[in-house]
Amino acid sequence: MEEKVKEIIQQYSGDRSYLVPILQDVQREFNYLPKDALCAVSAHLSVPISRVYEVVTFYKAFSLKPKGRYQLSLCMGTACHVRSAELIARNVEDILGIREGDTTADLEFSYETVGCLGACALGPVLVVNGEYHGHMNIAKSTKILKKLGKKGATDDEQD
């Protein structure tokens, strides 16, 4: 792990002003930010670990917990909000049984809401592992979760 972190830091010539992008790359590598990796960043970049921790928890893009196999991001931009994204959010939370920002215990699903993806014409938008699903509604979100193998995604709903 330390070797990988060193490698990433070297790509930025050890410049500590690149702390945020370095952490993004580290997160991409490990799917989250393990504590050991952060300690390695702190040591090799000569930034106190308290400052690294501050930055990691400040920015929404970082996660200290492992993410699920399926990462769901629901856009909560204003355009999506006025098109009832809130109702979809509730549906997703109900089905997955987790709150926004959490991961299911079986590490299958992570679910988060995001500020705006800038795909307002398609709003509401649900992104599953980078793939955009536009004009989302309650029924469609249920169907997607069902397809991904979420058993709770009810009922005897027919296509």
């Binding site: 106190p48 670990i49 308290s50």
Partner: peptide, 25 residues
């Protein structure tokens, strides 16, 4: 020594040691 710092932001912001664990420094 930078033993303590802030974590999170907005209403959730708080002062703590890194990872809320005993600080080595």
């Amino acid at each position: 020594v930078c033993a303590i710092g802030f974590s999170y932001r907005g209403a959730e912001k708080n002062v703590c040691t890194p990872f809320k664990e005993d600080s080595v420094s």
